[in-house]
Each structure stands twice: as C-alpha cells, then as structure tokens.
C-alpha cells in the first residue's frame, strides 16, 4: 500500500518541481536580460562606426567591429576646450581614489579597533556621532567644505578631494570595522596585553591579520563610492584636477556638431571599468576571506 502510493506520487512531485524550477529560471533569466540590455547596447554601440549607428538599429550587433571610438574616448575627444580624451582625468581619479580609499580604510580600522576593543568613557557617543556622519547628505556640506578647503589651501586640488572623501568615508569604514572587531572576543586583547604587547602591536600583529574579509568589503565600498562620485568632484575640482566622472559629463555635454554616440558609450564604459575590476578581483578574496573566517576558532 505504502509502496504503491510512493511510486505513484514520486514522479508527479518531480514533475511539478521541474516546472517550478523552469519557471523560476526563466523569470531570473528575464530579469538578467533586462539588466544586461543597457550594457549590451553600450558595448555594441561603442564598437560601431558613426555611419553604422545612424543607419542601423539600436540593438543590432555591429556589422564591422572598430575600436576607433575607444581610442578617441581615451585620448582624443574634447572635454570643453581641451581635446586630450579621458586619459588625464582617468589618472586624476586614480590619484584621488587610491589614497582616499587607503587612508579612510586605515583610519576606519584603527577607529573600529579602539571603539570595539579599548572601551573608554564616551566611546558609544563618539561611535553614534560617527554613524550620524554616514547619513548627512553630500549637498549639506558643500558650502562649509568649500570654505574649509579654502582655509586649508586645498581648494581645487586632488589632495583636497582626497581630504573630502576621507572625511566622508571615515563614518562608514569605522562602522564596518567596529562591527567586525566587536565580534572578536576581548580575551584576545587581554591575552596580548599580558603577553606584553601594546596598543599598536596588538593592532598590527593580531587584529589586522584577522581583518581581510572586512578590509575587502570596505575597499569595495569606498572605491565604488569615491570613484563614482560626481558632486564632490564637480564642486571641489578645477580644470586639470577633475575626476573622470566630471570629464565624462563634459564629453557628453560638449557637442560640436554631430553627437558621437559611440565615443560617449566607450567613455562611459572606460569610466565604469575600474569599479567593475575591483569587484571582480576583490570579490574573489571576499568569498575566500568569508570562508576562512567561518571556520571555527
């Protein structure tokens, strides 16, 4: 009796499961297509010639692949009056983002370490204030920041932009590291103290080596935010120190005659490439770091 019902039921359940699974995958596939469509159009358009863009369909594959638009976008296209492509601005962005990410991450790590492991009177208050800093909209600080940068003599310079991004990043990086370090038993710090290690020794030898997963998370977060930032970039830079996002805007907006869609698309992809790269490269370590941390002990 039981055997009979089982053998009768089993294939039916499998069948409905299969249908459900296919439905699910189709739906997910549809979403993925929807999200990938703009990227597809960007990539194909950037590989077409202007002639082909004018005559062909938006979603068609390029008949003849050409990298001219990429070369133009990188080193020839005009941003306003200058015509040297994205290249100088791309390096501006690198010069701004790399130190800003590094400094903000390091400061966040030290802050988080102090707040989580070296409790002092008012530690919670300071942490709350830093958290509050995460929620202040960029627009609010534009004017006071411009004034501060002027006083510090950093107005319109890349160090000025680094300064702004570090200040804005500390709230988030501290939050990340504090939440990570708070899960590490305080006995570890105590043991190291008894062993004779001091504040920075404990940080360098014990806490930092434990921090790979959270460092990766913080770096991805900071890099993406700072690289993609437009408002601070456009407000606190001047000709020659503009980051790539501002330059991209200028390329797209400074039209002289024909609108070069293929160059615009190539420029947009170039501007987006580093964040993509950071995610692909670091994402791997992110997963590895997570699994390493999940092992007991």
């Amino acid at each position: 009796m039981t055997d009979f019902t089982q053998s009768y039921d089993a294939p039916r359940r499998n069948y409905s499961q299969l249908v459900l699974r296919w439905l699910l995958f189709s739906l997910l596939g549809l979403f993925a297509l929807f999200y990938l469509m703009p990227l597809f159009v960007m990539v194909t358009t950037s590989l077409k010639s202007l002639e082909e863009i004018r005559t062909g369909s938006l979603v068609a594959l390029p008949r003849e692949v050409t990298f001219d638009a990429w070369r133009t976008a990188w080193s020839e296209t005009c941003t306003g009056v200058k015509c040297e492509g994205l290249k100088p601005y791309f390096w501006n962005s690198v010069l701004m983002t790399v130190p800003a990410v590094f400094i903000a991450t390091l400061l966040g790590a030290v802050n988080g370490y102090v707040i989580a492991q070296w409790r002092f009177k008012g530690a919670n208050l300071i942490f709350s204030l830093m958290l509050f800093g995460c929620f202040i909209p960029f627009q609010v600080v534009l004017l006071p920041m411009a004034r501060s940068l002027g006083i510090l003599g950093l107005a319109g310079s890349i160090p000025g932009l680094i300064f702004v991004h570090v200040i804005y990043g500390i709230g988030f990086t501290t939050l990340f590291f504090r939440n990570y370090y708070v899960t590490i038993p305080s006995e570890l710090t105590k043991a190291a103290k008894v062993d004779g290690a001091g504040f920075f020794r404990i940080f360098w030898s014990i806490f930092l080596p434990l921090s790979l997963p959270i460092v990766v998370v913080t770096v991805i977060w900071q890099f993406t935010n700072i690289w993609n930032d437009f408002l601070f970039g456009v407000s606190f830079s001047q000709a020659g120190t503009q980051p790539v996002t501002v330059a991209l805007n200028n390329i797209v907006n400074s039209t002289t005659g024909v609108k070069e869609y293929n160059v615009d698309m190539a420029a947009a992809i170039i501007a987006a490439l580093p964040t993509l790269l950071v995610y692909v490269v670091a994402g791997k370590y992110f997963i590895r770091g997570l699994t390493a941390g999940s092992v007991k002990g």
């Binding site: 038993p185 043991a191 008894v194 014990i206």
Partner: peptide, 17 residues
C-alpha cells in the same frame, strides 16, 4: 599587566587565530 610578571590562561583560550 605586562610588567607584573604573570601569565594567564583564559576560558576561551584566546589563542591568536
């Protein structure tokens, strides 16, 4: 603590991971 000439064993062992 470092100058007290003591050594300590903790409940969670507190080994450096």
């Amino acid at each position: 603590p470092k100058d007290r000439d003591i050594a300590m064993v903790f409940q969670s062992y507190a080994l450096y991971p």
